[in-house]
Structure formats: structure tokens, C-alpha cells
């Protein structure tokens, strides 16, 4: 199914409505995401992040690696404007955190622990989110069906989400992250719960999003082989600190083990 899924995506990647942030004054060479010395401390614990910096470019897939509790999800929540950093700053698509509404309009996010309304049908769920991004009702429904087709859920579009398996919900989450045709995509553990074939399909799609549409993709994963397979760059976090930030090369596993042990 992997090839088919990618082909379908390429055929339908043209959108009538496309959110543009080019008027923010950035050149195409500027990083899509630039994180500068971000720190985060929750009131009841040690620092979750300490002076984290990295950049992500258009057309690249950046992998955030790290053991549990390393701060990957916190970092993504900060950069997607859901959490405020304690220190440091960032910009996404040339927009500062104060322009959170504009940032949200231009990014797609697949949170790791996202819940789904069990009584809603898959197509209704996606259509609703399309509407929240400002799409007209008809366009939202059209895009919802197109995306469900792309992630292999067209046959279950009319079923309640409560009847979906874990892997199907992951696919639905990915479709939701793409509903606004984002220029930057944040995927927190996107292959969690998928079978090997499903993983391959999703990773192929992620790679295509970066290669063909020039989207900047930032994904977190525990799985080194996933990072090695699709990422151009890897950022390894340990206890909220960046311990490695470089292009992905062979032997990343050794680097990861050395950096996090």
C-alpha cells in the first residue's frame, strides 16, 4: 500500500486554498523553525528543558530522539505555542511566539497523546478540524475525504472513531495534521501502534512531504531505524539538554547510545 499511498498524495497535493506566511518577510533559505536557548521548568520538578537550540529547514526531516522524559514532547508543545517557555525564544515560519494564531495556521501537529471523540465519524472529525482552520464546509469535507484516502482510511470514513484500531487512529491523527496543508509538520511518535507495513507507509509519506512539497518535518521517535530511514538531521535530547545535533549518518545508533548512556 505504501507506493499507492504516496502516489495518491502526489496526485492531490495541489490545494485550492493555501495558507501563506511568505508575507512575513522571510526568504526561502531561512529556517522554517529556529529554536534559541529554550528552557522550561515546571513548578514541581527539575528543568524539563535547558538551553535547547536547533533549526529545521524546509524540505528536511528533523528527528528528535531521546529516552522517555528527555523533553521531546515539551519541546514540541512549546514550538507549537501550546506551552510557554520559561526562557529563550523561537520562531516558526518567521513568526514570533506572540503571533501564535498565525503560527498555528501554518503548522500541522500530531500530538503523541491525542484523544479522539469516539462517537464522531472519521470524516466528520476531519471536516470539523478543517472548519476550525477556516476552510469552507464543502472544501473541508472534500479535503477530509482526500486525506482519509491518502492515509488508507477511505473505507472507514463513515465509521465511528470508537471502532478504529490504535493504528487507524494514528493514521487519522496524521490526516488531521495535514488538513490545513501545513508548511511545517510536527509529528510526535507518528508510528506508535502501527504495524510494519503501516510504519513504512507513514514514513514514506513523511519523506514525500519534505521532498515534494518542501515542508519542514520535525518528528520524535524512540526508534533509531525510523530516524535513520527518513531524517536528514537528528537532534538527540537527554534530560532536557541537546547532546547531539548533526546530519544523520550511518552509526547513529552508536552515537545515540554514547550520548544518552
Amino acid at each position: 500500500m505504501g507506493t499507492t499511498l504516496v502516489e495518491i498524495y502526489l496526485q492531490s497535493s495541489q490545494r485550492a486554498v493555501r495558507l501563506s506566511v511568505d508575507n512575513a518577510g522571510m526568504s526561502s533559505a531561512a529556517p522554517a523553525v529556529e529554536v534559541n536557548r529554550i528552557g522550561k521548568r515546571y513548578s514541581d520538578g527539575p528543568p524539563a528543558l535547558t538551553e535547547v537550540s536547533f533549526v529545521a529547514h524546509r524540505g528536511e526531516v528533523t528527528g528528535l530522539l531521546g529516552p522517555n522524559g528527555a523533553g521531546k514532547t515539551t519541546l514540541i508543545r512549546i514550538v507549537t505555542t501550546i506551552l510557554a517557555p520559561t526562557t529563550g525564544t523561537f520562531d516558526v515560519l518567521g513568526l514570533s511566539p506572540r503571533q501564535s494564531t498565525q503560527i498555528r495556521a501554518g503548522i500541522g501537529v500530531m500530538p503523541e497523546s491525542a484523544g479522539y471523540p469516539k462517537r464522531k465519524r472519521g470524516v466528520d472529525y476531519l471536516t470539523y478540524h478543517g472548519r476550525l482552520f477556516g476552510l469552507a464546509a464543502e472544501a473541508a469535507q472534500h479535503d477530509a475525504m482526500r486525506l482519509l484516502d491518502q492515509v488508507g482510511l477511505a473505507g472507514r470514513a463513515g465509521d465511528r472513531i470508537g471502532t478504529y484500531s490504535r493504528g487507524m487512529r494514528q493514521r487519522l491523527g496524521l490526516a488531521r495534521a495535514l488538513i490545513n496543508d501545513p508548511e511545517v509538520l510536527f509529528l510526535d511518535e507518528p508510528t506508535l501502534g502501527l504495524d510494519p507495513s503501516g510504519k513504512r507507509d507513514i514514513l514514506d509519506l513523511i519523506r514525500q512531504l519534505a521532498d515534494e512539497r518542501g515542508a519542514a518535518v520535525i518528528l520524535t521517535s524512540h526508534l533509531l531505524d525510523e530516524i535513520e530511514r527518513v531524517c536528514d538531521r537528528a537532534v538527540i535530547l537527554k534530560d532536557g539538554v541537546v547532546v547531539f545535533d548533526a546530519s544523520v549518518t550511518a552509526g547513529l545508533a552508536d552515537t545515540f547510545l554514547a550520548a544518552t548512556s
Binding site: 508543545r77 507549537t80 501550546i82 494564531t101 498565525q102 498555528r104 495556521a105 503548522i107 501537529v109 500530538p111 497523546s113 491525542a114 484523544g115 479522539y116 471523540p117 478540524h129 476550525l132 482552520f133 477556516g134 488531521r176 490545513n180
Partner: peptide, 13 residues
């Protein structure tokens, strides 16, 4: 229900 994050991630005020 862990559905708030996805809603907050939209540009809806």
C-alpha cells in the same frame, strides 16, 4: 478526553 490539544492547535480564537 485528551482532545483539547488538537483543538488548541487550530487558529480558532
Amino acid at each position: 478526553r485528551s482532545t483539547l490539544e488538537c483543538i488548541l492547535l487550530t487558529p480558532t480564537p
